[in-house]
Write a protein that binds this DNA or RNA. Structure first.
Lengths: 229, 229
DNA sequence: TAGGATCCACTGGTGGATCCGT
DNA sequence: ACGGATCCACCAGTGGATCCTA
């Protein structure tokens, strides 16, 4: 599929997929999802990249480089509630003490995201739901920045081993490694380096769920409140 | 093939291969050399690694880690003269200014080498010739150290782009990249970094040829002179 | 339920060297 | 003749996420 030439075309294409089954899309594009079990991780995202004409492929860019847009699929239940958190990017542990949210790769990735919810039905079948192009509001950016600075500050201080998935309001840190034995370098308390498991930033499902319901919902706004001031 | 348990066994096995055709060895070990053209680069070395039970495989070690021995095949003509230079290792360009021969990976690789000459006959067939386990003599080490310091000094000074294969008496520097477009970071004259093609250390064919004739030949000794003082 | 662990496809870099134009 | 360019196999790392126990 040709790469969309602008945001409007990308969004139109994505929204036109609403209701389509993943199996059908896979067949059309000549790919196999292998619909059961743990061996299908990542297949959904790769399929939608193809369907929508993403070209980024490798690292250090977006899925749609000319648009600066990142594509994220998110599995949701019948109520539209995400079943999983969303991976953002790998954390550069070694440089944590110099990292700043404003110039971070995490922020660049989240600057403009095309969310494609994938409805997972009770029988296990999956269908594309309504896509949404989102950018963080100023208020959302503030909270993400706080999470980032908090987490990176602690990593920079040599506390990476003490960090758990509990840290961060919306952005959390979790292990990110294909095999448990992988190790990378991180700052140690004594100012040196220690070997630890690679980590990534993830968006909590609570946050992506709120986004999908109302993209400009303010931080702290509760369900049931009006979105009018 | 089982990994040799000591140097004597390794050398005995290697010398027992003298006269064997590469094709025959390949057949015995179930590998295909694809005997013609440019698509066979590296196959000889990989075959001999299998035949002799090398286990190193990945980087940062030797072919026979427990022995600290590196295996090198070298194509020679009927007179025993090498047809090619010998790759030693990739150069860490960025750290060139801090590099020292004594602690260098190049020296570690050359500390103990099992040379396996491969006789290339006029009809294109290839046979293993007499293997030789070599360590640099003190005098040889001095010359290699001079080459190393000369080259690394110039790289460290930001002169990598001005370096050619002419530099170095026995150890030379040449490009080392699967594709011409690969780039890596090296010191620049202004103290910053520049993107350049990766380089590797190679031993000149003149040097390896001298080694194969007389492993302890002193630096500067000419052909035809006696090896007795 | 969600934090920690893990899976697959893909590819860029590395180690094994030899090719080939000037 | 040899300095610069290139070829193949292999594997660790990355990006895509989801699995799976306590």
């Amino acid at each position: 599929m040709r790469t969309p030439s602008d945001e409007a075309e990308l969004v139109a294409r994505a929204r036109a997929l609403a209701g389509r089954s993943l199996e059908g899309l896979a067949r059309e594009h000549g790919v196999t999802l292998g619909s059961v079990g743990r061996s299908t991780k990542g297949k959904t995202g790769t399929l939608l990249e193809r369907v929508l004409g993403a070209t980024g492929g490798s690292s250090a860019t977006w899925d749609f480089p000319s648009l600066g847009v990142e594509l994220k699929t998110v599995p949701v239940d019948l109520r539209g509630v995400p079943r999983e958190s969303t991976f953002v990017c790998t954390i550069s542990l070694r440089d944590a003490d110099r990292a700043e949210w404003a110039t971070s790769w995490a922020r660049a990735k989240l600057r403009r995201v095309l969310w494609v919810p994938v409805l997972v039905l009770p029988d296990g079948s999956r269908r594309v739901a309504g896509a949404l192009l989102w950018s963080p509001t100023a208020a959302q950016d503030v909270v993400l920045a706080q999470d980032f600075e908090d987490i990176m500050g602690r990593i920079g201080a040599g506390e990476v081993e003490g960090l758990s998935g509990h840290a961060g309001r919306w952005l959390q840190v979790r292990p990110k490694a294909a095999h448990g034995r992988v190790r990378t370098a991180a700052p140690a308390r004594d100012g040196g380096l220690l070997a630890t498991v690679p980590r990534g930033f993830y968006l909590r499902a609570l946050f992506t769920g709120a986004l999908l319901r109302d993209p400009v919902a303010l931080p702290g706004r509760r369900e049931g409140e009006s979105s009018a001031g």
